[in-house]
């Protein structure tokens, strides 16, 4: 708080703004739950309301909207008006983008910073996209699960749908998953890239891709079995490719029993075993095995597994496991 710069001269004291009369917020109402604004904010937004009403689009409006946005990045009307002004003035988009690099970094949890970038990128075109991937990577390095940033990346890839942009995605995902294999955003991104956004060059052999993904996800489960993100990816992978759950029964069974005392000598790459630190039985694996048994119409065995979840392993979801039993029994 100590090295905060003094507030700028109020607009009401700036000669270059003397032609504008600020507009009060409320005209009639005595508002409930009023926000205790700072003087600086009250002053700036009074002038913003005035220029929006007069329809002025000028360089000083860009300065004003930037000022308001810095004080309150969630002020969507300021963003909206700024965008219209940028377009009306034919303002250099690279200059705007440089400012956005600073603001997105500062206010990365607000919707508007990301959407404004998106509007600019749509104006600039493909040439902005490669650089944007790099920028997003840098932001995700400091906030690994930022929802807006991940969906912005997915939008960028899908919108331009350019082979060059897609080319580095699997490596990028590897970096993120290696940093934290529990990062669900990274797993979702992998699903988006591999399965939900068309087929890349060199990935036309879908059976090979499915095998590759199975190896990838199983390896990650073996490193840390109690990881819902990886199990959900595995379920999504089988479901999307219309493969029976029983495709991976031998793998799942390695995780439904307590950890064996000694590691096996032979490594089966299709069925990587749990590491020595694994806490087993793994709830997600028991659930998976129950679903396999249900799929095989072996309801008795499925029920035994669901019972163990309901009564011992995952008692918080007792109601759900009992529902699954009743549902399977009623078929």
């Amino acid at each position: 708080m100590t090295d905060k710069p003094p507030p700028p001269t109020p607009y009401s004291e700036r000669p270059e703004w003397s032609d504008v009369t600020p507009l009060a917020q409320y005209e009639k109402a005595n508002p409930l739950a009023p926000i205790l604004y700072t003087e600086e904010y009250k002053d700036a937004t009074g002038y913003l309301r005035a220029v929006v009403q007069s329809g002025e689009k000028s360089e000083r409006v860009l300065q004003l909207t930037e000022h308001v946005i810095r004080l309150n990045p969630a002020h969507y009307s300021a963003w909206q008006y700024r965008y219209e002004t940028v377009v009306a003035l034919d303002w250099p988009l690279d200059v705007e983008m440089t400012l956005m690099d600073e603001l997105a970094d500062k206010f990365l949890k607000t919707y508007q910073v990301w959407h404004h970038r998106r509007l600019l990128i749509m104006c600039i075109g493909l040439s902005a996209a490669g650089r944007e991937l790099g920028y997003i990577k840098q932001i995700l390095a400091q906030d690994e699960k930022n929802y807006h940033t991940w969906s912005h990346r997915q939008w960028l890839l899908a919108f331009f749908n350019d082979e060059g942009l897609w080319a580095g995605e699997l490596d990028f995902i590897d970096t993120m998953v290696n940093r934290d294999l529990r990062n669900n955003s990274a797993w979702h991104h992998r699903f988006f890239v591999v399965f939900q956004s068309g087929v890349r060059e060199g990935e036309e052999d879908r059976e090979r891709i499915v095998r590759r993904e199975l190896v990838y996800v199983k390896q990650h489960i073996s490193l840390a079995p109690n990881n819902a993100s990886a199990w959900n990816y595995l379920r999504g992978l089988l479901d999307f490719n219309k493969l029976p759950l029983a495709t991976i029964t031998p793998f799942v069974k390695l995780y439904t029993a307590p950890l064996p005392a000694a590691a096996k000598d032979i490594v089966d790459v299709d069925n990587p075993p749990p590491g020595q630190g694994a806490e087993l039985p793994c709830v997600a694996a028991v659930e998976f095995l129950a679903d396999i048994r249900e799929e095989e119409r072996n309801v008795d065995e499925a029920e035994t597994l669901w019972r163990s979840l309901a009564d011992e392993l995952d008692t918080i979801r007792k109601k759900y496991w009992e529902y699954r039993i009743a549902q399977a029994r009623s078929v």
Binding site: I35, Y37, Y41, N72, P73, A74, S77
Partner: peptide, 17 residues
Amino acid sequence: GMPSRYMSYDASQPWLL
């Protein structure tokens, strides 16, 4: 009223209500 840390809700006043 809402303390000034609620200033980011200036564009969400109906929500506060």
